[in-house]
């Protein structure tokens, strides 16, 4: 654990990240970063995220843009010579970041999208794409007032409709009660 005085920032307790992640196994070879399809765009690359977590600098890690740029392709975890589940480390960081509400500003849209996705499932049990797009676009607009983003993809809708790929009738599950209770218990524990 890095002393707060030397690092100049508050450190998180290691208990923030689950022990099953075996962070100490990582020897920083960088194979995760090497194979990551989006590493070129990342501010903090995968091996650095694991390193920050090893040092207990979890807060800095969870504020990184890169955790939301991760496409969850599992390449890092698959090729890790030490079998560290790097993708799971990133998931754990995202969960913490979501819980604390301190995701990097530039990644708000991705967070909003994932959140809207979960709400959508909570309401319907199954994804209602039209509702998801509506809610997400509105939230994103309210967040950054970007009109081009609001109407981007608008041209796709009629084409999808023409191909019979848009459904206006939601495909809902019958037993919505159990789903509501599941969400309630899972999110409350978090």
């Amino acid at each position: 654990m890095i002393d707060a005085a030397t690092s100049g920032e508050a450190t998180a307790v290691p208990a923030d990240l689950p022990a099953f992640l075996d962070l100490e196994n990582c020897y920083q070879c960088g194979k995760c970063t090497a194979g990551c399809p989006v590493a070129e765009r990342m501010d903090v690359v995968p091996n650095q995220l694991v390193r920050l977590a090893q040092l207990g600098l979890v807060e800095r890690a969870r504020r990184a843009e890169s955790i939301w740029q991760c496409v969850s392709c599992q390449t890092c975890s698959t090729r890790c010579p030490k079998s560290v589940d790097c993708a799971a480390v990133i998931d754990a960081l995202r969960q913490l970041s979501f819980e604390k509400g301190d995701a990097a500003g530039s990644q708000r849209r991705t967070v909003l999208f994932q959140e809207a996705f979960l709400r959508n499932i909570r309401r319907n049990g199954r994804l209602n794409e039209l509702e998801l797009v509506g809610v997400f676009k509105t939230k994103a607009f309210l967040d950054d007032l970007s009109i081009p983003f609001l109407f981007k993809d608008a041209m796709l809708a009629p084409r999808m409709r023409a191909k019979g790929k848009l459904h206006f009738k939601p495909d809902r599950v019958k037993d919505g009660g159990v789903l509501e209770r599941m969400f309630d218990r899972c999110l409350r524990q978090a």
Binding site: F98, L118, R126, C186
Partner: peptide, 15 residues
């Protein structure tokens, strides 16, 4: 029901 997709494992492990 939905499997949770990326949203679930990115936001809430238990879910």
């Amino acid at each position: 029901v939905c499997c949770g997709a990326t949203a679930a494992h990115a936001l809430n492990h238990k879910l």
